[in-house]
Design a protein around this nucleic acid. Structure first.
Length: 101
DNA sequence: AAACTGACTTCTC
DNA sequence: GGAGAAGCCAGTT
């Protein structure tokens, strides 16, 4: 299985109402320094609805990019709708950060 | 095969 | 806490 598939698999595990950082996913996938690559995978996102790429944020909780129509704004709305806590323009990681169970 | 690109992260100032 | 710079990875051209 390729690193990419692993990333998608992990991302798909993020529970509703929680978020994970690119670096965190990269680490779980085996490459702690592949956070950047992870971002690309989300951008591609071949498993659109199956993989909740909107639950992936930057290390500081900031919402970066979003390919789907609506962009960042839409992404933020979705997260709020799912119950994710926000701190201004950033996600409150101290509360909504996902802990791999 | 080499170079370019980007939805990242971390360190300094 | 905001701005700039350097490092790292996989995919695309």
């Amino acid at each position: 299985m390729s690193f990419r598939d692993t990333v998608y698999k992990i991302t798909a595990k993020i529970p509703k109402g929680k978020v994970a950082t690119y670096g965190q996913i990269a680490r779980l996938a085996g490459n702690a320094k592949a956070a950047r690559a992870v971002g690309m995978f989300m951008k591609k996102n071949p498993f659109a609805p199956r993989v909740p790429c909107h639950r992936v944020v930057a290390s500081d909780g900031k919402l970066t990019g979003y390919s789907a129509p609506g962009g960042i704004v839409k992404k933020k709305s979705m997260l709020i709708h799912e119950g994710v806590m926000f701190k201004k323009a950033r996600v409150d990681l101290s509360i909504s950060r996902w802990s791999e169970s």
